[in-house]
Amino acid sequence: MAGLKTRKKQRLMVVSTALVVFVGAVALVLFALGGDSLSLFLQPSAVVEKNIQQGQRFRLGGLVKDGSFEKQADGLTYKFVVTDCVADLPVSYRGILPDLFREGQGVVTEGRLDDSGVFVADTVLAKHDENYAAPGTMPKDAAACAHPTAEEAQTP
């Protein structure tokens, strides 16, 4: 009986150690890869920080800045500003916008920067946030940019 007990204890040790080591290894790999390479899109401040060159294709995401949306005279081209409350980036897009596209709501776009620093997108996806509310009511948390932190407020 004693032998059986030790074998169980041994198996418990081996399996637990293997699990802990494996989980640790995966955590380190994820940490080493870093947030940006595993993210679907870059936010405007990351675009500035990384100094992304024109012509390089990437996805840009953030909030559609309030009051920035304009429909061009041809009725098919749209201009708006994507912001992460720290940096802004103007976007131009020709195509059909998804139903949930709105000022103050999230958006993920794909395209390239042109020589004037405008992000020319060929795909625009709406990013729904985690807030749910009945029609005519407001969600518990207002839009992300409504309450800038002290640090953000200082950014000119």
């Binding site: 595993l38 993210s39 995401g61 985690e130």
Partner: peptide
């Protein structure tokens, strides 16, 4: 952890 299209919890 990452920027995703899927909303957070």
């Amino acid at each position: 952890w990452w920027n995703t299209l899927h909303q957070s919890a």
